[in-house]
Design a protein around this nucleic acid. Structure first.
Lengths: 199, 199, 199, 199
DNA sequence: AATGAATGAGTTTTCATTCAT
DNA sequence: TATGAATGAAAACTCATTCAT
């Protein structure tokens, strides 16, 4: 890997685990195994590096969504798979969850600076709209559901769980980060959402 | 207000809007209108102050939940009110959302240090359990629903929206922080969840 | 004990164990069990308190020396007792050793400010002079020994040992602070000095 | 000189003249003519810098002792030279005296942290042992003298004088820091110790 | 493309001292 | 004589960034 890519990966990790303010340029360089000055050489400064990390994180999710290919499935099957893979993506990409959250703490200021903001737009909304329409036509889903709201609900059911896993575990006195607990949450999420969409 | 309380309020605001690392002790003192050294006099250090802010934030939500008094209402009415007030609390207490998120970024390390962790345990779980049971008995709710999962779902539907309001607005190209957008989200959340609970 | 005396005793301990700069006014007040402001009430400020501590420490040693009453003893007996009691005083008053040393680190600036500096003058010099003269007349001690130099030698043989007990222990790889080690040093000091004074 | 060495030299001076607590990192950097942050870059923190200063101070005395080469001299000549050079070293290295004393005020805590504590062990003890044995065999020294005790006595006779030169001067009402006073002390020390070792 | 040394501006924290009562 | 709250000045330490090579 080029030193640029090494830095990007290291920065991704550091920003995700410590937040923008908590992240250390020194730590990023060390993690990447390269000289600190290269950060400035390749990315200008800490903030711009953060922007690049955000971009690449969104690239990742977009790429995944593009590969999903739900259009050819029956509405209920497609929906179930969408819910499941959304949940799984969050489960496996806690970094992404943390990054998103931190960016929101900063009121999205870095995103705004990203020129090609359209790159970030999820293509999923269109897919979801299609599934909902087909499902409504077939009579398996309710009519008039707003795909944006459904998308937010699907994401939120998993996001909140993973984003707040430490405080929830503390409050409820159980470890929500175990495999069983996550599997259990997954079943509940799928179940709840599929029920909610029924006519 | 005592200078201690002034500091606590100012710290709440500062930590919520900038996160733990981003928050400045200087800024907190200035906001509170007191001498910076009082922070150390009253709270020991920045981290312990953060802990106290967290505690008081949880006190706030517990207090609200205690006043809710849903036990005497019909199951569906109680559930609807619970969903609505949960959503509204998040809408009105963005600080709390930010604080929670930041604490999770730090893997809940400050919460763990809070001695009386039980104080934070939500009393809502018991109430929710009662509502679900009565609803199931009356045949208006599904049977066998785990109150913890339902609680997480209720909270998550609103939390994700407010926590990620900046990135979601950017991605979808619309301002989700408007009164109408929030009202619209509120309706969807209530609707989705009530549907999901039907037998 | 009056709060003033409590403070003086606490200050003695604190200054001896941490040095002037390392000592904390807060710690002194706490140790004395009184309000910190009383330090300022009774002593003006930290430096003047330090001066009072020094004075009282010297008072202690002068008092002890006054009680010694060596004039009536045979020269060799008197000398032996002087050496032994000097060594023992240092052994039992490490605080005094530390205080002296710290004052010298500050180039004796506090002593200079003590008005009644004469109070500190050791009366021992006269006594020692008498013993040396009588011993020389009797032929048991060498002639022409300077009592000041002898005094410094007597003190130095014990002082260096106790003052540097930690570094010496580390360098020599043995614990010089044990009862046996101290007893052994005591024998050596008496032996060496008595030998050195022989004609 | 590298900025690291400049800092070390400046720190040596500052710590010796003000003690650990009294020393200022700012002052050290200024004295060294470099940026304050280099202290942290090169040494981590104030305490570790202090440790390095101690180490280098001991290196200095060990180096000097190594060069002494007393083994080939007659016992009495060797002993006299050892006493004289020990005294002279203290006379010329007041910094070392102060550093030692301050380290003892802290109960040797920094020395304990120095990994290679053996580096500090004085090689003089072996030399001294040889001289004492040869002298005893030749009948010019007493038998059975413990080299460690003799070493401590030699060092103590000079150390106490220089370490306490301010308080002694004040108490005795004379300036012990004059060339004549020091020369006079030197003669006395040599004289006393040589006498003390006679059979 | 890469590096080690250096730095300015800030950040938390400490501490002797004073104020109001 | 006594106290709790408050403060100004300075201390150690941090960190993103730049310089010289």
């Amino acid at each position: 890997m080029s030193s640029r890519d090494l830095l990007l990966a290291a920065a991704h990790e550091e920003f995700a685990s410590r937040g923008y303010e908590g992240a250390r340029v020194d730590a990023i360089a060390k993690k990447a195994g390269v000289n600190k000055q290269l950060v400035y050489h390749h990315f200008g400064n800490k903030e711009d590096l953060y922007g690049k990390v955000l971009e690449s994180a969104y690239d990742g999710i977009r790429e995944r969504e593009r590969r999903l290919d739900l259009a050819r499935l029956r509405p209920q099957t497609a929906m179930r798979r969408l819910i499941e893979t959304s949940f799984d993506y969050l489960a496996e990409n806690r970094d992404f969850v943390a990054l998103l959250t931190d960016e929101n703490l900063h009121k999205g200021k870095h995103m705004k600076r990203i020129v090609d903001i359209q790159r970030m737009n999820t293509p999923l909304l269109g897919t979801l709209d299609g599934i909902l329409r087909r499902g409504a036509a077939e009579g398996v889903f309710r009519k008039g559901l707003d795909p944006l709201q459904v998308y937010v609900s699907i994401a939120g059911m998993g996001f909140f769980y993973f984003n707040n896993i430490y405080t929830l575990s503390a409050i409820f006195g159980q470890n929500l980060d175990s495999q069983e607990a996550i599997a259990s949450r997954r079943r509940h999420v799928v179940d709840m959402l599929m029920h909610a969409l029924r006519p």
